[in-house]
Write a protein that binds this DNA or RNA. Structure first.
Lengths: 333, 333
DNA sequence: GTGAAAGCGCTAACAC
DNA sequence: GTGTTAGCGCTTTCAC
């Protein structure tokens, strides 16, 4: 492993000059530059980023904390975020909290240890105070920590409103509503508004509440099974992508026809909702925009180029599928 | 940002002593230790990992290169690998190559720059030579670079064999085989053996070849559409999870019944195959074992504890779903 | 234009 | 037992 000193020696110059060539900073005569480049070439020299990092006190790495990459929404989010960060010159370190608050904390600690330049968090296990005491760049997705930490999120209120409108226009009478988002998270808003609108229109809504920090096959399966067993005569479902699909699976296995006997609306609208038959009508979060906004915001903080807004809300979109009857929405129920 | 010198000063000791307390190395009297710990506490001192890294010439980070985390197999793989690496004391940096060889190369370069201690690669865009010239720890999943680079992979030959046996026992006469794995990758083996066995048994197989570096909704959709349009009378399908599901979707939309009119066998067996109705009969890769083996192997290389085997092959498993008739397999066609 | 030297924050070897 | 010192490999003043 050749070092900058070896290069300097071989080229018969000082290390400072080599550094200048490496970074294109300061003046170096064409002749010296050539000598140095030859030496670099000959030695196969590659600068040690660790030393650079120490000097600059940065690593060019952003930590992305999520509950679980295996969840389609988060795998999509990580994918887009990694690409966005890469385009901004940053690398991505992932952390799956998988419901363990200590994991979340440990990754946050990497901020103080200077292992990451900033954090994008979409996990919700750890208390607010653990976040608020950090002084380095943090961007939150969907969780409001107050004015200190910028947040990016979808317009879940509008999303809940759209879901309600779809199921109302589909003339449902008894709706199964599967909830289970972490407390204090903006994504919960859709549930509240949905229930409010339904009750205003006198439509019966029955609930199944999932454990909010489980994303495994069994958990979804169980929620769907409870929904099936506990409630009769359900003719509409509103749930996140996976519980919606699992419930639809069970209902079809029990002989129900979709959309004739059962209307299904999924929230998130990831690719899995287009995979099944029938394709599931969805309220789609714009993960690309969410990711890019998170990435841009955290980089703005890191390079403190400009003030960043406290809240950035990204709109959601209705996608008609075959699991509900075709409707036109106006979004103002 | 307090440094070790501040702590030393405040405690009235030398930096070496502080370092010893920090690392639990060497002798420090209980009294001095207490003083130092108090100073650390008071100053809220946290060691700068960058400086440590420079000294130790390591970062504790492993790069995981995959085609696309959004693909269920890879999101699963990354999830398990991150957890396995974490348990071994390492952090995970992800790179989606998304078919761009330059991205793959750039992440490989981080090895030489000492930004990562090792690499686990499951991407296949870049030429062999780029990998072979590296001197630092690399573990490959499913791609054989020769004896220099240890490889971990599933038993795809057995997997192809199982798929063939299922469809033979389901008495299929015309099988749609959707292929499209990167060239030179072990996962291709399943295709070859599948076709061989089928032809030995006189069963007609028709092919649709997908672009191997595309994992988006449109690509799968297109492949399924081509399969539907181009071939009539297909009564069996063998494909990776997603093309299998998309084809099944289209076939059902066209009025075919599964499994009565069409048998479907998926390869990979991720959760999406259990989500749809009917659940899809699958050949399942053991991602947890694959991930753990990759993680253990790369850490063995990094800490060069022991010689690692060139090839580690993980077995695959048959999972009966509702998309084929129930069969018992014996695996030796 | 270029070399020498200081220093980023830490660890470890070596005195005392 | 503990302080001092010499690096780890780089960047950046500051003389010349």
């Amino acid at each position: 492993m050749a070092s900058i000193r070896d290069v300097a020696q071989k080229a018969g110059v000082g290390v400072g000059t080599v550094s200048r060539v490496l970074n294109g900073s300061g003046y170096v005569s064409a002749e010296t530059k050539k000598k140095i480049e030859d030496a670099i070439e000959e030695l196969g020299y590659i600068p040690n980023e660790l030393a650079r990092n120490l000097f600059r006190n940065r690593t060019g790495i952003v930590g992305v904390i999520i509950p679980d990459v295996e969840h389609p929404f988060f795998s999509n989010f990580v994918r887009q975020t990694e690409v966005a960060l890469y385009n901004l010159g940053y690398k991505t370190m992932v952390c799956n909290t998988i419901g363990i608050s200590n994991r979340e904390k440990e990754y946050l600690d990497m901020l103080e240890r200077n292992m990451v330049d900033g954090i994008i968090t979409a996990a919700h296990t750890l208390e607010d105070t653990e976040y608020l005491k950090r002084k380095k760049p943090i961007v939150s997705m969907d969780r409001d920590f107050g004015p200190q930490i910028p947040m990016v999120g979808s317009d879940h209120i509008y999303g809940g409103r759209l879901a309600a409108e779809i199921l109302l226009k589909n003339k449902c009478h008894k709706i199964l509503h599967i909830t289970g988002v972490a407390p204090d998270v903006a994504a919960n808003d859709r549930h509240a508004i949905f229930e409010t609108i339904m009750s205003e229109h006198g439509v019966e809504v029955v609930d199944v509440v999932m454990e909010w920090n489980r994303f495994d096959h069994e958990a979804y399966w169980e929620a769907a099974r409870i929904g099936m067993r506990k409630y009769d005569g359900v003719d509409g479902v509103f749930a996140a992508d996976q519980p919606a699909l699992y419930y639809m699976h069970l209902a079809m296995a029990a002989g129900k026809r979709v959309p004739e006997d059962l209307k299904v609306v999924a929230y998130d609208g990831m690719d899995i909702t287009k995979l099944c038959y029938p394709e599931v009508t969805s309220i789609c979060q714009n993960t690309q925009f969410l990711s890019e906004t998170c990435a841009n915001t955290v980089v703005d903080l890191i390079e403190n180029r400009k003030r960043v807004p406290h809240k950035q809300i990204i709109s959601v979109e209705f996608r008609q599928g075959g699991s509900t009857l075709p409707v036109k929405l106006n979004g103002n129920l």
